[in-house]
Amino acid sequence: MAESNLLNQNNLLILGIVGGLIGIYLSGLSTIGGLISCLGGICAIVWGADAIRRVASYGLGTGVPSIGYMSLGIATVGSIAGLTAVLAFPALGGLAIAAPILGLIFTMIIGACMGLVAVKIIGMKIPIMVRCTVEIAGAASLSILAFSSAVAGGFAAADILNYVVAPGFIALFYIMNCMAIQHPYNACLGPNEEQTRTLKCAASTAFLAMTITGIIALSHAGVVPAILILIVGLCGWYVSFKAFLKASYEAAASVKWTGLWPKVEE
């Protein structure tokens, strides 16, 4: 299936990391900070959905959602550790500005351990298991950090603990981002699955998650920034979901007209 990729995996990786980090770092801006942060989260989710697509096409044996839930588990531990490590260890105090990058690195280290355990100890025979687990966990980490910063109005650890962890929104982000990352491939997998269609679905689930983040952001970020996130999220969802539906109809029509599956499988 790798040959049918229109978008290169490394380009998507760069889009996810750079887009996600820019979003998180600009989350402190007034009014539009939350919006930019959420858009960064969407870049990360699209990257994660592509990584899921690559690893799950080998057949995990446990269903597509399992790796999503696991990666989000890794990401919550790693990203919160990255944010609060600068508070916990005074020696790291100078790194406060690098907290999101630290969170991403921590998450990727745990992800690499998980990938290695899966390959070396459990004996899974997926060659790209380590790389993809690292990528999905990294994407999950950036998406959680981006949405959390949008709600808390910045990536300061104390703000995120106060406005995202204490009210329990972090649990919602856990499940919501997991759905946004794992659902696209789970919904599109099959003989004529193709990258652009799956990623259109990923964009629609990501914008849907962003819309919900907009509602949550009403709790702390203020009315105008929250409404901005909500409206842009809804518009983005409408456009991307329409594009996904169109792509699905086009792919379905080629089946309907010939009565045969298109020759894209293996």
Binding site: G73, T76, V77, G168, Y174
Partner: peptide, 10 residues
Amino acid sequence: AIVSVGIFFI
């Protein structure tokens, strides 16, 4: 709670 959920899923 969230850390134990994470460790649970891992």
